[in-house]
Amino acid sequence: MKRFAADLHVHTALSPCADDALTPPAVVLAAMDAGLDLIAICDHNTAGNAAAVQEVADGPGEGRVAVIPGIEITTAEEVHVVALFPDTATAAAAAAAVLAGLPSYEAGARRLGRQLLMNGDGDIVGEESKMLSAASLFPLAQAVAYVHRCGGLAIAAHVDRPSFSVCGQLGFFPPDVRFDAIEISAAGHDQGRDAEFRVLGLPLIFASDSHSLDEIGATRSYFELEAPDFHGLARALRNAGGRTYGIA
């Protein structure tokens, strides 16, 4: 077992609210510069750039970072769920299911920012026309169950925030929804907000939810893993109990 630095919530230029400079090569370089061993790519309701980021990360070069493909799913209640998948094909299939149920809201899509699909060279290869920040058709419990059926991990995103979080949208933490972990945001970390979520008995992680290059790795968690990959992470979280994966 070895200690690995992970930022499990990173956006790319595909997310409308994220910086267009978040190209696959730029994201990988920023993660390496930040000393991360593992990142998860989680754009809103899509995994359209995850394979390109993984392709860059798997390319030649010393000390490359490992990439887990993911989706930040917006549930019907507007709760954000970070879904992580074992491989890009599974992530793409799950993303297709989420996108199929997303209202198109094309006018809304134009209001927030560009939604750039990119290849491993950082070239723009397309633009998503649906409004990716819209609420999907999946209610929270079904979204989490679906992620599990795909063999993925479901993490309650930025639970300390009033917006787009489990408690912010629902007013309570539903005990029957089987999250694999709870994510505390950068601000929540600084304010020690993790303390109030320990009672849930789920692993607590910190992640950046970075929407720009300089945020990548600024908030992170350290995991004791056999290897910095999805399966190592999944085993660690399942055996973690109520452990907090701190910054130190």
Partner: peptide, 9 residues
């Protein structure tokens, strides 16, 4: 109260 809906409409 659904902000993505407000953004769209």
């Amino acid at each position: 109260d659904l902000l993505s809906d407000v953004l769209a409409h």
